[in-house]
């Protein structure tokens, strides 16, 4: 039995805003085992980003407990337990692409040779070889997002937290990166927590899909989804795939409140 690496117990988070409190997370209890690929799916505003940010110690829960690798999220962050891919690329405009990918490596204090080889291999992985010396504004939005994925991978974390990393990409690139990510995951056995709006993407990638519902953000349903280790994109035509996709869709519908 693989070890539990992320464990949320009755997690609550309420933002105090000028228009009163916003209940972003309510009673979230979730265990994620080492090597799992978990997708968080749900309508906009249901707290997917917030949950990911709590794991990353970017947000403090107002109730319940969260533990990462048996530590508090803060300790895990200091131990560099995860790599985080934001919804936006968040590249530093004054750094070239290679310098952007190298940023976390500089912060970690790695030597120049290690940095160089990690930058090269990860830019290769996201098909950005040849763009090392470009500045972010010289790249399309999709390329920028790929650079930000390369930046998170370069840290070589045991855990990847990804917030809609492929949301802004076109279908073809998205398919390609889904395959790459799956290969990477199968090879390295990283734990991945992946936020998405796309049902096929979630079903294709995940071992479990967490369906969330809004106001307040909570877990509606958790769907098991293991389609075998070496699946290819063709699997999306198979009945098993479509069955799970249907299940997720039904879950999303049931969890969605239309009374607004």
């Amino acid at each position: 039995m693989p070890e539990t690496v992320i464990s949320a117990r009755n997690l609550d988070l309420t933002f105090e805003t000028n228009d009163g409190p916003v209940h972003a997370l309510k009673d979230i209890t979730l265990d994620i085992a080492e090597g799992e690929f978990i997708s968080l799916i749900g309508p906009s505003g249901c707290g997917k980003t917030t949950l990911l940010r709590v794991i990353a110690d970017l947000e403090k829960p107002t109730g319940g407990t969260m533990s990462v690798n048996g530590m508090t999220p803060g300790q895990a962050r200091l131990a560099r337990a995860y790599g985080y891919v934001f919804q936006q690329a968040a590249l530093l405009p004054w750094r070239t692409i290679e310098k952007n990918v190298g940023l976390p490596l500089e912060v970690m204090g790695l030597d120049a040779a290690t940095r160089k080889s990690r930058i090269a291999s990860n830019l290769e992985l996201v098909n950005l070889a040849g763009f090392e010396k470009k500045f972010p504004w010289q790249l399309s939005g999709g390329m920028q997002q790929r650079a930000s994925i390369a930046r998170a991978l370069a840290v070589e974390p045991a855990m990847l937290l990804m917030d809609e990393p492929f949301g802004a990409l076109d279908e073809i690139v998205r398919d390609h990166l889904n395959e790459q990510l799956l290969k990477l995951w199968a090879k390295t056995k990283k734990t991945v927590v992946f936020v998405t709006h796309s049902i096929p993407e979630a079903v294709f990638l995940s071992t479990r899909i967490v369906v969330m519902s809004p106001r307040p953000g909570r877990i509606h349903e958790i769907i098991e989804c293991d389609l075998g280790a070496d699946r290819s994109l063709d699997i999306r035509e198979t009945p098993e795939f479509l069955k799970i996709a249907h299940q997720v869709r039904e879950g999303l519908k049931a969890g969605h409140s239309y009374d607004e």
């Binding site: 990353a56 970017l58 934001f86 968040a90 940023l103 840290v155």
Partner: peptide, 20 residues
């Protein structure tokens, strides 16, 4: 966003000053 990014790297105050 960039401050959050540096936080996920657990950058020190000095690194934050110097690099961001």
């Amino acid at each position: 966003l960039h401050l959050d990014l540096m936080r996920t790297y657990s950058a020190t105050k000095l690194q934050l000053l110097w690099k961001l």
